[in-house]
Write a protein that binds this DNA or RNA. Structure first.
Lengths: 334, 334
DNA sequence: CATTACCATGAATACGTTATCAAATTTAGA
DNA sequence: TCTAAATTTGATAACGTATTCATGGTAATG
C-alpha cells in the first residue's frame, strides 16, 4: 500500500495523449476536442489525480495564495476581518496564509518576508502600526498589498476602512452634546496611525468644534485587551472625565466593568462609546453604544480590491472608506 | 525599475561558486568551508537574495506549511486554538494556511483537498464534525493530521483536547450538589462527537451517579452563537430547569442575558456553567462559572505533536488529554 | 612518500507543472 | 478536389531549488 503520487504524466500515458493536453483539460483551456477532454477526465477520475499546486505555482508563477498579516486572531475585530477576507478569497479560489504579528515591527518584517518567499500573489495587511522600514519593504515588492481596517497615514498603500476621524468626531460630539465637559479618549497604541493620527484627530476636531480645550491628561493609551481596560479604569475614574470614547470593544468592556466595580454608574455618571460593535458590546451590561464598523465587509472588500490589483485591472479608488454607523445602547444617555 | 527576481544562479555567478554551494549555505549544510560560506553570505546580502519557497517546496517535497481547518475564526474558542497553533508553528518555521469550513462536511472535504493539493506537510483539524467520507479522506493521505480541541469518536486520528466527558460530568455533578434537580444540557450540534458523544455522555454519567433519570426535554441543541443563546433562553426558562451546562461561551452569554431579561435571577433562580473560559465569561455580569480549557495550549501541543508526526518520530501517546480545571464565578452558588 | 580517508565543490538531474511554438489534423472556401 | 485557415495536439523548454554522484584536493595514516 505504498502511497504513489500520480502525476500528469501518468494520466497522459493512460489516456494516450500528451501531458500538454492533460494540462489543458485540467486548466479548462477551451482548445481541446470534447471527446479527448472526456477521455482525459475519465482517466483523471479513475486514477484520482490531483494537480500539485506547488509545481503549478512554480511553472505559472502564481500561487493562488494570499498572505494575511494581523496582530492577533484572538481579537474579535481582526478575526471578523479575517473571516470576510477568507470568504471572498475562497470565492476566487485563493487560499489564505495567516500570520500573527503581534505589535512588533521586526516580527512584521519577518512575516512579510516569509510570505513573499512563499510567492503569495498578494497580501492584506491589518497590522495597524507601520514605520519606514516596513513602508520600504512594501514599496520594494511588486506583490500587491492592501491595508484592511487600517490606514497608511501617507496614503501610499491601497486600503479599505471607514473614516476613523469622522467616526470618532461623531462619537465625541454626541458625548459633548449630552452635557459632558470632560471626555476621555482611550485607545490602543498611539503609535498606530489609526489611533495616533486619525482617531485622535477626530477627537480634537470635535473638541475644537465645541470650543473645548484639548487636555492631554484625558488621553489614555493602553494595550488592546479586556484586562488592560479593567486596569486603566481607575485612572480614568480619577481623571474627572464623565465620558469616554474607546477604540476597541475588549478595552471598552474592561473600562465599563472596571468603572462599574468602582461604583461608577453607567451611563448616569459616565458614558461610553466603543468602536467595533462586536458581540461583546451586546453581551456586556449595560450594553455598549458603539461605532458600527462593517468589519466583515471591510475584509471582503479589501480582498476584492486585492483580486483586482493582482489582475492588473486599474482601480479608480485605491483608498476606500466604507460607511459606518452609530448604535446607541445603554452606555450613553439618549 | 524593473523588478528582477534574482535566483540562486545569480548569487552563484557573483560569488564564483556553483549553485549547489549556494544551496548548501542557504540550508545551513555544514559541508562548506567557512570562508566560502562567508563569501556567499556576503553576495546574498549584497544582492538581497531570497530563496523561492515554492521552488524549494517542489525540489524538496516539503512546503513548510501546515493546513488548519476550523469552523470559524470568529469564534473565540477556535481563534485561541489557532493562535496557539500559529505560535508554535512559527517556532518551527512553519506557516499556517487557514481555512474556515463552517459546518458543512462537503466544504470540509473541499478544503482538505485544497490543502493537500498545496502539499501542506501536515494538517490540524478542529472541525468537530466528522463522517465516514471525511474519515476516509483522512485515512487515504499520508499527510499527518491531528485533531485539536475535538476528538474522533473512533480514536482513529491523533488528537489533543481535554477529557470532555469528565469536564461535563464534573460540571453537572457540581450543579446537582447545590440542589438542582433539573439540569439542562445546552450545546452546539449534537452531530458533533464532542457534543453528541462525549459531553452528553458526561451529562448522563453525572445524572446516573446521582440517580436522576435522563430527561430528553432538558437537552437543548442550538447554533454556536450569542444570538442563538439569547433565542433559546426562553425555551430553557419554560423547561423548569434550574441550572444548565452550556458548551460554548458565546451561547452561554446569550442564555445568561436572555434569562436575565426574562426576569430570571442568576444564580439564585438559575445556575450556569460554561465551557471555555474565554474573556466573555468575565465580561458578562454576573460572571460565568466555567470549565477551563487550556485552549492556547491545546493548539500549541497539537502543533507540537504534528511536528513529531511530520518528522516520522514515533509518539507514545496519540490521543492526548490535557488537564482542565473549573472556575466558579458568579453564575453558580457556592 | 605512498596510500587511504575525508572534505569541499561542481555538474547534472529531478521535482510536476505551465507555456511556447511548431506540427498535425480538421474544417471551410473556392 | 485543392488550398487556406482554423483547430487540436505534442515536444520541449522553462520555473528555481534540492539532491545525488563524481571529482579534485587535503589531511591523516602507515
Amino acid at each position: 500500500m505504498e502511497k504513489q503520487t500520480i502525476t500528469i504524466y501518468d494520466v497522459a500515458r493512460e489516456a494516450g495523449v500528451s501531458m500538454a493536453t492533460v494540462s489543458r483539460v485540467v486548466n479548462g483551456n477551451p482548445n481541446v476536442k470534447p471527446e479527448t477532454r472526456k477521455k482525459v477526465d475519465d482517466v483523471i477520475a479513475k486514477l484520482d489525480y490531483h494537480p500539485n499546486a506547488v509545481a503549478r505555482g512554480l511553472a505559472s508563477k502564481r500561487s493562488t495564495t494570499i498572505g494575511v498579516i494581523l496582530p492577533d486572531v484572538t481579537n474579535a475585530f481582526f478575526a471578523s476581518l479575517a473571516r470576510g477576507i477568507d470568504d471572498v478569497a475562497a470565492m476566487y479560489k485563493y487560499n489564505i496564509i495567516m500570520e500573527n504579528s503581534d505589535e512588533s515591527i521586526d516580527r512584521k518584517l519577518e512575516v512579510l518576508e516569509n510570505l513573499l518567499a512563499k510567492q503569495v500573489d498578494g497580501v492584506i495587511y491589518m497590522g495597524n502600526s507601520i514605520d519606514d522600514r516596513l513602508r520600504d519593504a512594501f514599496k520594494n515588492t511588486k506583490t500587491p498589498i492592501v491595508f484592511a481596517g487600517s490606514v497608511d497615514d501617507k496614503k501610499a498603500m491601497p486600503s479599505v476602512s471607514i473614516d476613523y476621524k469622522e467616526a470618532v468626531k461623531n462619537s465625541i460630539s454626541k458625548l459633548i452634546e449630552t452635557g459632558n465637559k470632560k471626555v476621555a479618549f482611550v485607545s490602543g497604541s498611539i503609535e498606530e496611525p489609526v489611533n495616533g493620527k486619525y482617531r485622535l484627530a477626530g477627537y480634537k476636531a470635535a473638541l475644537k468644534d465645541n470650543k473645548i480645550k484639548f487636555d492631554e491628561s484625558l488621553v489614555f493609551e493602553t494595550a488592546r485587551s479586556y484586562d488592560a481596560g479593567i486596569k486603566i479604569a481607575s485612572e480614568i475614574a480619577s481623571s474627572k472625565a464623565t465620558a469616554a470614547y474607546v477604540s476597541d470593544d475588549g478595552i471598552a468592556a474592561g473600562v465599563l466593568n472596571g468603572l462599574t466595580d468602582l461604583g461608577v454608574k453607567i451611563p448616569e455618571d459616565f458614558e461610553i462609546i466603543s468602536s467595533n460593535n462586536t458581540d461583546i458590546t451586546k453581551m456586556v451590561r449595560p450594553q455598549l453604544s458603539s461605532v458600527v464598523q462593517p468589519m466583515y465587509d471591510i475584509g471582503a472588500v479589501a480582498m476584492r480590491l486585492l483580486t483586482k490589483l493582482m489582475n492588473g485591472e486599474d482601480v479608480d479608488e485605491r483608498n476606500i472608506a466604507l460607511p459606518f454607523e452609530m448604535v446607541f445602547r445603554q452606555s450613553t444617555k439618549d
